[in-house]
Computed example of a mutant assay.
Amino acid sequence: MLTTERLVLVSPEVIKAPVLLDFHLQNADHFAQAGGTLPESLRICRQRLKAETTLWKNDRSYRFYGLLEGELILDVSLSNLVRGVFQAAHLGYKIAEHHTGQGLMTEAVDAVVRHAFNRLRLHRIMANYQPWNTASGRILEKLGFEREGFAKDYLFINGQWRDHVLTSKTNKTFQFKL
C-alpha cells in the first residue's frame, strides 16, 4: 500500500471484482480512447485480479488501484518488468473521467515511480502516450520524464495502428547489483 496526500494506492488483492467492474463500466467510453481490453463481467474481473496478484507476487508486474475516500478512481501499472541488465518497466495509468484535471493522477504516478525506484529498485521507467493525449504528456513532463522519440504505428488500438510519443525516466541514484 502507498499513500499520498489524497489517495491510498492498493494492490489487486484488496480490490473486489464488483468494484472493478463498476469502475470500468462507468468509464468505458473514456477508457476506450486509449485502447486496451476492459473487463466485461464479474468472472473476467475476478480472473484479472487473480492474474494481477500472481504477477505482483512473481515480480513481473505491479498494478496499484487508487482510492479516494474509499472510491476506486484510478489505476497505475508497472508492466513488462525486466530485471537483469535492464531493470526497467513500462508505466500505464487511467483515471475515472469525473476525476480528471484535479492533479490526482500526477500524485498517484509520482508515488508509484518513487516506489519503483526506491523499493523495487528499477533503473528505468518508460511511458508512452498518443500525441492527442496532451494531459498525459503534461503529467509525465511534470514528473521529469524525458521525450525520447516518436513511434509510428506503435500500438493497434480501436481497429488501427496508433502513433505514440516515447518517454522515460531513469533512477539517477541507481546502483547496479544482480
Rank of each mutant, 00 (worst) to 15 (best):
L21Q: 08
H99M: 08
L91H: 04
L104T: 13
R46E: 14
R138F: 02
S77M: 03
E141T: 14
A32K: 11
T3Y: 02
I139F: 11
G144L: 01
N158H: 02
F150R: 10
F117E: 03
V76P: 10
V165N: 01
L68A: 09
A116H: 01
F145T: 11
R119F: 03
F23W: 09
L91T: 12
S77A: 02
C45N: 01
L91K: 01
Y62R: 12
D110I: 04
G92F: 08
L21R: 09
V85L: 10
T3E: 07
G84E: 13
L72H: 12
N80A: 06
S61P: 07
H99L: 09
R6Y: 15
E69W: 11
E52H: 10
T37N: 15
K57R: 15
N158T: 07
H99E: 03
G103T: 06
P39S: 15
T173D: 13
V165I: 12
Q87C: 15
Q102M: 08
L91A: 11
I139K: 01
V10R: 08
P39W: 03
P131C: 04
E146V: 04
F176N: 01
H99G: 09
F23C: 09
H115V: 03
R121S: 05
V85S: 10
S168T: 08
L120S: 05
V10L: 00
A96I: 01
H98M: 02
N171Y: 06
D22G: 09
F145D: 00
L166G: 02
V82Y: 06
T54W: 02
Y65I: 00
K94V: 05
F86I: 10
I125A: 03
Q130K: 13
K142T: 12
D59R: 12
F150L: 14
S79A: 15
V19C: 10
T54N: 02
Q33L: 13
G144H: 04
N158V: 07
E141V: 13
A88C: 15
K169Q: 13
R162F: 00
A96S: 12
A127H: 08
A108Q: 07
G70K: 13
S168L: 07
D22I: 10
S77T: 09
G144P: 11
N171Q: 13
G144M: 06
S11D: 14
K152V: 12
A28D: 10
A151T: 08
A127V: 08
N27P: 11
R60F: 07
T100A: 09
D110E: 14
R6Q: 06
I44K: 15
G92M: 00
D29K: 14
H24M: 14
N118R: 01
F174N: 04
V14H: 11
W132A: 13
A111P: 02
A127E: 05
S168Y: 05
N128C: 11
Y154F: 00
F64K: 01
E69F: 13
